[in-house]
Amino acid sequence: MTEGTISVMVVDDHPIWRDGVARDLSENGFDVRATAADGPAAVRIARTVRPSVVLMDLNLGTTSGVEATREITTALPETKVLVLSASGEHSDVLEAVKAGASGYLMKSASVVELVDAVRRTAAGDPVFTAGLAGLVLGEYRRMADAPEGGTEPPRLTERETDVLRFVAKGLTARQIAERLVLSHRTVENHVQSTLRKLQLHNRVELARYAIEHGLDED
């Protein structure tokens, strides 16, 4: 997927910030389809323009970016939400992820970091500002501490497990291909095969599964 094909919507209640982010993305080749100033407008407009990625602020005045995230990801499963927030509070990060956000980026990020984060989010990769990824990993590991019902996990090949381990570490398919000396297509095939075996839907869920099973650890 090239940047020119990635459509985005920017949601923020501060017009100067909102317009600035939209301008930065447009100048870097993204298709900025819409902006919104509050949660209800974001949900309504997203249903119409169906962007690939929604950049979502959490503090939208009287409305909640978390609830807007939940509604958008429920109504539009193909649309990814990347939170762009000034808050690094652990509770905010975890609530956003639980609501369906694919990633969480601090507003202190540079334009280069923002562009890379939007591109990776559109590709299905979980993206987090440094320091926040560990928080999310720890939470999913804690949630997985209590085993369910003793069902036997699906059997993955050694190569599928290798790929899954790198997915958990946040590497892109191309980076994984370089690490394992495989073609990009072969890595994608392993990812799709693993998704089918685990009955998961996307790379974000795949990363969560890997984290829950400790595959992000060396």
Score class of each variant (00 low, 15 high):
residue 3 E to M: 12
residue 4 G to I: 03
residue 5 T to K: 13
residue 5 T to V: 07
residue 8 V to N: 01
residue 14 H to Y: 04
residue 16 I to N: 03
residue 16 I to C: 01
residue 16 I to E: 04
residue 17 W to T: 08
residue 17 W to K: 04
residue 19 D to Y: 11
residue 20 G to P: 00
residue 24 D to S: 08
residue 24 D to C: 03
residue 25 L to E: 02
residue 29 G to V: 06
residue 31 D to H: 13
residue 34 A to W: 01
residue 36 A to F: 00
residue 38 D to M: 01
residue 38 D to L: 01
residue 42 A to E: 10
residue 49 V to L: 06
residue 49 V to C: 12
residue 50 R to C: 12
residue 51 P to I: 01
residue 52 S to H: 15
residue 52 S to G: 15
residue 54 V to C: 02
residue 56 M to N: 08
residue 58 L to I: 10
residue 60 L to D: 01
residue 61 G to E: 15
residue 62 T to H: 15
residue 64 S to D: 05
residue 64 S to P: 13
residue 65 G to S: 08
residue 65 G to W: 00
residue 68 A to N: 05
residue 71 E to W: 03
residue 73 T to W: 07
residue 77 P to C: 10
residue 82 L to W: 00
residue 82 L to I: 04
residue 83 V to D: 09
residue 84 L to C: 14
residue 86 A to N: 14
residue 88 G to D: 14
residue 88 G to T: 11
residue 89 E to P: 07
residue 94 L to M: 15
residue 96 A to H: 13
residue 97 V to P: 14
residue 100 G to Y: 14
residue 101 A to G: 12
residue 102 S to M: 10
residue 105 L to T: 12
residue 105 L to S: 10
residue 109 A to M: 06
residue 111 V to W: 03
residue 112 V to M: 08
residue 114 L to T: 07
residue 120 R to Q: 14
residue 120 R to S: 12
residue 122 A to T: 01
residue 126 P to C: 09
residue 131 G to C: 02
residue 131 G to H: 03
residue 132 L to W: 02
residue 132 L to F: 05
residue 132 L to R: 05
residue 132 L to A: 00
residue 140 Y to N: 02
residue 140 Y to H: 15
residue 143 M to T: 04
residue 148 E to Q: 13
residue 150 G to P: 11
residue 154 P to T: 03
residue 159 R to L: 07
residue 162 D to P: 12
residue 165 R to C: 06
residue 169 K to A: 05
residue 169 K to C: 03
residue 171 L to Q: 02
residue 172 T to D: 00
residue 173 A to Q: 07
residue 177 A to T: 01
residue 177 A to C: 02
residue 182 L to C: 00
residue 183 S to D: 15
residue 188 E to T: 11
residue 190 H to K: 12
residue 192 Q to H: 06
residue 193 S to N: 13
residue 198 L to V: 09
residue 198 L to E: 10
residue 200 L to I: 07
residue 201 H to C: 05
residue 207 A to C: 10
residue 211 I to P: 01
residue 211 I to A: 13
residue 214 G to L: 03
residue 216 D to G: 13
residue 216 D to W: 04
residue 217 E to H: 13
residue 217 E to V: 14
residue 218 D to G: 09
